[in-house]
Design a protein around this nucleic acid. Structure first.
Ligand code: ATP
Length: 683
DNA sequence: GCGACGAGTATTTTT
DNA sequence: TACTCGTCGC
């Protein structure tokens, strides 16, 4: 078996590790994912471990699929029974399997973020809370953070009157989820933990069952995930985790970097392996990446070396605004296309909104591209509307889906009828659907809706059900009447959904709506991404684990990367790691760019300065870094910040004061440039 | 009682 | 831009 020939000494040691917990702490591109994959092969083929006793956790479903594919190539044993997937999909599977020990059914629904938001708004409305005073996204985040820390609605100790109201929402939110036979993403983890914590029999069974547990991207696990792993590893302590503290970028979602930093203390009998050889990038790229990330304090240092050649310098360029940045970017990109395929190139940015300018330019130049993220297919209004019908018909307790379709398309059920249904249900302690059926007796508009739903019940095949929904609600017909470009594209999406559903029934030979819903519930953007011959566009977060010969990182301006919010929240180190992750995706060549003027809309008057991260690179490694003026450099690195002071200059016009330097000089941002001028000049 | 329309405001990353 | 909130006409 030539398996071990494709690994270096350090990797082989890790792959062959036996007996107790292990942490593989290693930098970017050192083959961590490869070690996990080959270790599974080793366990199955050499150690005779049955695949179904191995649990492998990846960060995305996509990563799981790729690993599976790789494994099928490497192993002749049937691996169908291997547990491989994300924490969330593993938890969903456990919770469905052990449903008798939970208050949920086998077919519980998974609420996505939109559903969560809608439910929270509905509850706030019932509790007479103003969205001005309590922004729903803030409540959602609070609840999510609590759940990731395994604090339930009763344990939550509110501080201050605002939090008391948030606690009310949290309690009601959980009650409604239970009534709806639904869980949000965080509940998948929390409920699994609860199951393991409260039911020793189940815990022991799973612990005993999973002889080997392997976790990729361990640096981005949160407390709930950590506790689940702990519960599963009390007897079978073969917990094998790999990660890189410098690549922890999901703190906002509760990922806790101390999970990896403190692994040694948590598992004192663990063995630590380090992989130091990088197989991906040139020396230049590694040096640049390392010179950036070494500015972080919260990290375990690592060495990383490569036998690759030195490689070309990184290239820095800019543009006045996002559009001109994109224009310049595409110029470089076209040069790269002379000796690269489109699929060798990736463009990464901090926020989804940044893709717009770049897309426009690529479209203009006729360069095919593929975009990951943004508005996902399954989140588009028309798709969610129709899926909500299927969801509700499959589960009449699902109040969120019901509430969504109640007046979609418009059928005259507005604020008043809605409130009446809500309070009627509340009063009688019955579900929304039961309330609707009772009210239908004296309200023809409502009884029409009940009739509509009845006519859709008892359709067994999901493809037929979808067709019937479209037909009976007139969804496409109404869009057709609108006769706008927008409506036409919605119709296209619906036809696409129809064909996706058809394919599903043919390929999977599964026909029931519930099976289809379980399939799409945990789908994400990156999962759908395919390496066809297009340039790839995605957020830096989505680049995790990928590699490309040529990488562009756009928008390296202060307040973009690092993002304004992160500067305010003091999470600069995570932003720096994000930049580090982006840099280390590249095999050969990196382009960096920034822009000076914010786009249209809010804050468009704001001028931006180059990102502080650029100055953590050496101009020996980066072409174009020297071009940034001395003034701009000073502006980023020093001086006293000023807010909202403007000056008028006879030549440069109106300018915003950014900083005061040495007490007597002002650093001013005029349209398109930054100047340092004596304070006296303006008095 | 419903919904169209205009005014005003917020502002990231995702399983 | 995109979404919420308040007003007004049907
Ligand atoms: N021993 C090896 N010989 C040749 N190539 C290797 C070896 N180990 C890893 N590689 C290659 O190096 C690249 C990076 O490997 P992998 O994705 O496993 O690293 P990683 O540590 O998970 O990276 P990251 O943390 O940056 O996502 C891949 O292209 C992989 O095929």
């Amino acid at each position: 078996m030539g398996l071990l020939e494709e690994l270096n000494e350090e990797q082989i040691k890790a792959v062959k590790h036996l007996g107790g917990p292990a942490l593989i702490l290693a930098g970017a591109g050192s083959g961590k994912t490869r070690v996990i994959t080959y270790r599974i092969v080793y366990l199955v083929e050499q150690k005779g471990i049955s695949p179904d006793r191995i649990l492998a956790v990846t960060f995305t479903n996509k990563a799981a699929d790729e690993m599976k594919e790789r494994l099928y190539d490497l192993v002749s044993t049937n691996l169908k029974s291997l547990w491989i997937g994300t924490f969330h999909s593993m938890c969903a599977r456990i919770l469905r399997e052990y449903r008798e020990t939970t208050p949920f059914s086998r077919n519980f629904v998974i609420y996505d973020e939109q559903d969560q938001g809608n439910l929270i708004k509905r509850i706030m409305n019932n509790l007479d809370m103003r969205e001005k005073e309590f922004p729903p996204y803030y409540i959602k985040r609070t609840i999510s953070n609590l759940k990731n820390r395994l604090i339930d609605e009763h344990e939550f100790e509110p501080m201050g009157s605002k939090q008391i109201r948030i606690k009310e929402v949290y309690i009601e939110y959980q009650r409604k989820l239970l009534d709806s036979d639904a869980m949000d993403f965080d509940d998948l983890l929390f409920n699994t933990y609860r199951l393991l914590n409260s039911n020793e029999g189940v815990r022991r069974e799973l612990d005993r069952h999973f002889k080997h547990k392997l976790v990729d991207e361990y640096q981005d696990t949160n407390h709930a995930q950590y506790m689940i792993l702990k519960k599963l590893s009390m007897k079978n302590r073969d917990l094998f985790v790999v990660g890189d503290d410098d690549q922890s970028i999901y703190g906002f979602r509760g990922a806790d970097i101390s999970n990896i930093l403190d692994f040694e203390e948590d598992f004192p009998d663990c063995k630590i392996y380090r992989l130091e050889r990088n197989y991906r990038s040139t020396q230049r790229i590694l040096r640049a990446a390392s010179s950036v990330v070494k500015h972080n304090k919260e990290r375990k240092g690592k060495t990383l070396w490569t036998l690759e050649n030195e490689g070309g310098k990184l290239t820095l360029f800019n543009g006045y605004d996002e559009n001109s940045e994109a224009r310049n970017m595409v110029k470089f990109l076209k040069e790269e296309l002379l000796n690269h395929k489109r699929s060798d190139i990736m463009i990464a940015y901090r926020t989804n909104a940044q893709s717009r300018a770049i897309e426009d330019e690529l479209l203009k130049e006729g360069i095919e591209y593929n975009i990951v993220g943004g508005l996902r297919f399954y989140q588009r209004k028309e798709i969610k509307d129709l899926l909500s019908y299927i969801q509700f018909i499959s589960n009449k307790r699902d109040s969120v889906s019901l509430s969504r379709i109640l007046n979609t398309p418009r059928r005259g059920i507005g604020r008043t009828r809605r409130d009446r249904i809500e309070s009627y249900a509340e009063e009688k302690r019955i579900t929304l659907w039961e309330a609707i059926k009772e009210i239908a007796r004296e309200d023809t508009i409502i009884s029409d809706f009940v009739d509509l739903i009845s006519s859709l019940e008892n359709i067994e095949r999901v493809d037929e059900l979808l067709e019937a929904i479209i037909d009976k609600t007139g969804y496409i017909r109404l869009l057709d009447e609108e006769d706008t470009v927008e409506a036409d594209s919605r119709i296209e999406n619906i036809l696409e959904l129809l064909s996706v559903v058809k394919t599903f029934t043919l390929k999977e030979e599964k026909y029931s709506p519930v099976e289809y819903l379980a399939e799409v519930g945990l789908k994400t953007d990156i999962d759908e991404w395919k390496r066809d011959d297009s340039v790839s566009l995605m957020t830096l977060h989505n680049t995790k684990g990928l590699e490309f010969p040529v990488v562009f990182i756009a928008g390296l301006s202060e307040e973009v990367l690092p993002h304004y919010r992160s500067i305010k929240d003091g999470t600069i180190e995570e932003e720096r790691r994000l930049f580090y992750v982006g840099l280390t995706r590249s095999k050969e060549k990196v382009y960096l760019s920034y822009y000076r003027k914010r786009g249209i809309g809010w804050g468009s008057s704001r001028m931006l300065i180059p990102s502080r991260f650029l100055f953590e690179l050496s101009s020996e490694d980066v072409d174009g870094l020297d071009w940034i003026s001395k003034e701009e450099r000073e502006e980023v690195l020093s001086g006293e910040s000023v807010r909202d002071e403007w000056v008028e200059h006879p030549i440069w016009g109106k300018g915003k004061v950014l900083k005061i330097i040495d007490g007597d000089k002002l650093l001013i941002s005029f349209d398109g440039m930054i100047k340092k001028i004596k304070r006296e000049f303006f008095t």
